[in-house]
Amino acid sequence: MFFKKKKYNTYSDEDLMKSIQRGKSPAFDELYHRYSSKLYFFFYKMLWQNEAKANDFTQELFLKIIENPKSFDARQRFSTWIYTIANNLCKNEYRKKNNQQKAYDQHQLLQTATTTYTEIDFDKIVFETDLMAALMQLPETHRACFILRYKDELAVKEISKILNCPEGTVKSRLFSATQKLRKNLKKHQESYID
């Protein structure tokens, strides 16, 4: 009666962060539920579809929230803040990774994408696989823009803040990414458009 259970699922992300700052464990659970999959997918795609790295980075990111929740300024949007950290983590990882290894990974991915195209099946599942492979062929900046816009459904303005670039650049990258994907998924399009 006196201790009415709070419904954290009705809270905004920013309010959840305020509760986390006060040490409310259920608020953290709710926030993890909302963002863990999105962030995991973001890391997975941005870090060469490496599952282990995606798990490590997801954990590292949420640990940052636990360790220093007051670094979040409630005046800004939580999604912008969390994706900015995620993007910075990826950038650091790119720096660590040497170019040779990166080139090898890219080559491997291209191989995977090509082999997939040989077994063309106009099924949605196959398209999904191809789309993921095609995404990996995009430059990192374009890929990040595309995922944040169409997977995480963030506004262009917000993406520009996360990636620290003008809105025009974001739109340009999105258009460029869409054109490249169209080229890579051309065989799918013929059936899909029909």
Binding site: Y32, S36, S37, Q59
Partner: peptide
């Protein structure tokens, strides 16, 4: 795509 459930436990 979901992260490893152990991550949640650790966190």
């Amino acid at each position: 795509a979901r992260p490893n459930p152990l991550i949640k436990q650790n966190l």
